[in-house]
Design a binder for these strands. Structure first.
Lengths: 144, 144
DNA sequence: TATTGTTATACTCTATAACTATA
DNA sequence: TATAGTTATAGAGTATAACAATA
């Protein structure tokens, strides 16, 4: 197996910054539409995959466990998630989406899918930047 | 001028998410090394380009003006920035880097340049994903 | 009248340390 | 002893509303 080709990191990072800036902005707006913070929306999105222990959620979001306690507290108070005791380890609490939580998580996902399908927030200039980057990678690759 | 080629948005977004996650993590660590939060580090980075009014800073970071007041207060208390009256509009205060603020901003930039040059935080798997994406774009392009 | 910046207020996120109940 | 989760605490980011100074 040959090594993967190198790319222009500076250009890639600039592109990433612009694109994910738009993505993050859209996610924040999508969550706010359901009266949620971005962190709360992210937890619901993670839980769409299935129940998760408090510790696992904290690891996924790279924050302290004590922090996750507060976030889940607020979600639980609004009836979007519930804590369930683990059968195998009595120390563990599994966080599960309620029916209402599923509805909200799906609403966020639907809004984000629109973003993913369109790259609507990218300006023509940014779209050209993307193309320039890809073109350059192609040229570098074929010239080697 | 022909239109720019389309790319697989879902794959691109996944790649962006992983890559900018690494970038954001590195920036947070770089700022923390100087005992700064990510927001504070971002303001110093913006000010490397030159002085900026409070309102302009708030717009750049897409937060409320009242929020920027607190952030700049903390930076000023540590001697990293100063507020200067505008000559043309007496309502405006321009925020300027102090010598120490420049030193800290440069230290963050140096650490981030190392990240930019390496993409070190990307796993081999993610590097392969990047290559796969680029390869697919190349094939679609030449096949059309 | 509109804009710049601040203050007051309230909520959320965040980490650290200390605690409990399990394992 | 180590781990899962919580509580207490404190600092920082965030937005809203009201305000003074200026345009």
């Amino acid at each position: 197996m040959t090594g993967t080709p190198r790319v222009d990191t500076a250009q890639l990072m600039e592109l990433l910054s612009v694109s994910l800036g738009a993505y993050h902005g859209d996610f924040t707006v999508a969550a706010a539409t359901e009266n949620l913070t971005a962190s709360q929306g992210k937890v619901l999105t993670v839980l769409r995959r299935g129940p998760a222990a408090m510790r696992a959620l904290a690891d996924t979001m790279t924050c302290d466990a004590s922090n996750m306690t507060g976030i889940v507290d607020r979600l639980e108070k609004r009836g979007l998630v519930s804590r369930e005791a683990s059968a195998s380890d009595r120390r563990v609490k599994n966080v599960v989406l309620t029916a209402e939580g599923e509805r909200v998580a799906d609403a966020i996902r639907t809004k984000m899918r629109a973003t993913r399908d369109g790259l609507d927030k990218l300006s023509d200039q940014d779209r050209d930047r993307l193309y320039t980057l890809l073109e350059r990678v192609f040229i570098d690759q074929t010239a080697s």
